[in-house]
């Protein structure tokens, strides 16, 4: 009996935690469909007006396109780099491997503002600031460690003889990489691609510093908020949230399902 009460209490607590996390986002979604200009209760009537205005706004459309290009490019570059470093770690033993791994995993531990300033300084020094690909480079540096960590987890599960078995059956090292390592890592690679795309799509600080005239969606949101209270922000925010949560859920589905299988 007391066990059942304890379970009920724990479930209640869990529910509270979820409410605490998701209430602000839910509020933003609710207000994005509210006709009133100010986010107050009682609510006004239902409207899709704010969505209509953001879709009609060329500046926001441009920012969305920039964000999509940046996050897709970042995803490809960061996942490739992440796979290469994870495979190096899996396959080879060498001196200074510890420092090598530490260096690779370092970027996420650097405060974003420091990272952003450093990126700006470096990119303008090499004459590459304010370009679309400046953001792509910066985001790739920022997200590659996540991709590496995910793919490395997958490679830790591999039977150490699997690659050698492929060589033994007549495949060269490149063929084995393509026909054994890549298929084995596929779920992790897809997860890493989704996750790095999501991080890049949401990232504000670095993007704001290095983007120049190529504003991404988070940068536009800040500009709108700085001007005045505008319900459009709720509409953009809801769409951004939807995009990110989709990517993150996809990453989870591909990865968690594989981990629990082995």
């Amino acid at each position: 009996m007391s066990a059942r009460i304890a379970t009920a209490l724990l479930l209640g607590w869990l529910l509270l935690v979820f409410v605490f996390i998701f209430a602000p986002i839910l509020a933003s979604v609710v207000f994005s469909f509210n006709s009133d200009r100010f986010p107050t209760i009682p609510l006004g009537s239902f409207t899709t007006r704010w969505y209509d205005t953001i879709f009609a706004d060329p500046e926001i459309g441009e920012a969305a396109r920039t964000s999509i290009v940046v996050s897709l490019s970042t995803s490809v570059i960061a996942t490739t780099l992440g796979f290469a470093t994870a495979y190096t770690d899996y396959r080879y033993n060498f001196r200074f491997k510890g420092p090598y791994l530490a260096l690779i995993l370092l970027p996420p531990t650097i405060p974003l503002i420091i990272m952003a300033l450093a990126m700006l300084a470096w990119l303008s020094w090499i004459g590459a600031s304010g370009q679309l690909w400046s953001i792509i480079i910066a985001h790739s540096v920022l997200t590659a460690p996540f991709a590496m960590a995910i793919i490395r987890l997958r490679l830790n599960q591999i039977d150490p003889n699997l690659e050698a078995a492929a060589w033994n059956l007549g495949s060269s090292e490149w063929k084995a990489l393509r026909s054994v390592i890549l298929p084995f890592c596929r779920p992790a690679i897809i997860s890493a691609a989704c996750l790095t795309a999501a991080v890049s799509f949401d990232e504000f600080v670095v993007a704001w510093f290095v983007s120049g005239l190529n504003k991404t969606v988070p940068v536009i949101i800040l500009e709108i908020v700085q001007g005045n209270i505008d319900p459009q922000v709720n509409a953009i925010g809801s769409l951004v949230f939807l995009t990110s949560i989709t990517l993150v859920v996809l990453a989870q589905v591909f990865f968690i399902s594989r981990i629990s299988r082995t």
Binding site: L162, S171, P183
Partner: peptide, 29 residues
């Protein structure tokens, strides 16, 4: 090199390719 030897091995861990079905495993070589 290993892949030019034609000395196939049955491994202690078997080392079957988990992403391939039984027939595709056999087809690999």
């Amino acid at each position: 090199p290993v892949h030019e030897r034609d000395t196939p091995m049955v491994w202690q861990s078997l080392a079957l390719f988990p992403f391939l079905n039984a027939r595709e495993n056999v087809e690999f070589g």
